[in-house]
Design a protein around this nucleic acid. Structure first.
Length: 149
DNA sequence: TCCATGCGCGGCC
DNA sequence: GGCCGCGCAGTGG
């Protein structure tokens, strides 16, 4: 059975905290998947995501950002090579979070290869999403996040 | 360059 | 509910 998501801050973590690696994020329960960018269940929603500039359809702004959905990438090139799947539990989880308004922990890769690679960006919420052609022309999700409350 | 590993899900009993 | 196996991934050794 999938573990229940934990929404909100974990432990004493606060925005600006730095973490060494995905493994550390996982062991500390901040972002449990070791590789996937979205920690979620379809039924309950997304508890955490990682921004790592791996998806071409991301778009970052000052007070909000668009986070590309999961899947459809060529693992070698990083380009979208197929449509993203609406029934993927990670995409479903993000859509669920949009409905519930639960906070999503956001981590950002700030220093690839460094010893403090990931920064906690605090709690955000999914406020909208689109599903349509991305830069590649394939169908991709884009989730809009803004600071939580 | 290669591939392990952990997660959620679905099928089955 | 519990067990098992599958598929996949915003890593990383």
């Amino acid at each position: 059975m999938a573990a229940s998501p934990v929404f909100g801050h974990v432990g004493t973590a606060q925005p600006g905290d730095l973490f060494a690696s995905r493994l550390e994020l996982s062991l500390r329960g901040q972002h449990r998947p070791r590789r996937a960018g979205v920690g979620a269940t379809a039924a309950l929603g997304a508890e955490s995501i990682v921004l790592a500039e791996q998806y071409e359809d991301d778009a970052y702004h000052d007070d909000h950002f668009w986070y590309a959905g999961s899947g459809g990438r060529d693992p070698k090139t990083g380009r979208q090579v197929t449509d993203q799947a609406p029934n993927d539990y990670r995409n479903q989880g993000l859509m669920r979070s949009e409905r519930t308004g639960q906070p999503v922990r956001v981590f950002r890769r700030i220093a690839p290869g460094g010893d403090r690679q990931f920064r906690y960006e605090g709690l955000w919420q999914v406020v909208a999403h689109t599903y349509g052609p991305g830069k590649s022309g394939f169908q991709v999700f884009r989730f809009k996040l803004k600071p939580w409350q």
